[in-house]
């Protein structure tokens, strides 16, 4: 069965969603990701959705759930690369995804994760991590 690949990048995990998601794939992905966070001790998850041309309430809920589960597992989730048309549609749909952090692209998402990680470790001047 096809799966969404999860890449390890230092202390973070990067997930690039490219396929047109069908529902079963979404559920499998949720299992895979939480399992990976727990196993690797990742401190942050970047979900790149720049390839998605639509996000409906089912996928929206999945993203919100992942953010919630990750937080419990002590990892921060940042959703990056949402397209303008997708963002407008989600807002109109009534799905503002409160509590999910966002960034324009992977690079900026990484900065965001580093910064918040740095603050949590009390290293306010230098957000870089030595892993």
């Amino acid at each position: 069965m096809e799966r969404i690949p999860i890449l390890r990048m230092g202390p973070f995990l990067l997930v690039t969603i490219q396929v047109d998601l069908h529902d079963r794939l979404v559920v499998t992905f949720q299992d895979d990701l939480t399992e990976q966070i727990s196993r690797t001790g990742a401190r942050g998850v970047l979900i790149d959705i720049s390839a998605l041309d639509m996000v409906d309430s089912f996928m929206g809920r999945m993203i919100a759930n992942i953010a919630g589960m990750s937080r419990i597992l002590d990892a921060e989730t940042v959703v990056v690369g949402m397209r303008p048309a997708v963002a407008i549609t989600l807002v109109e749909l009534g799905l503002a995804l409160p509590g999910v952090r966002t960034a324009l692209d992977v690079e900026k998402g990484m900065e965001l994760l580093r910064a918040s990680r740095g603050l949590r470790l009390g290293k306010e001047e230098d957000g870089d991590l030595e892993d």
Binding site: M82, L90, V91, L97, T102, L104, D105
Partner: peptide
């Protein structure tokens, strides 16, 4: 809100 979803 939409801008925030995009990360701005």
């Amino acid at each position: 809100t939409a801008a925030r979803l995009m990360g701005a």
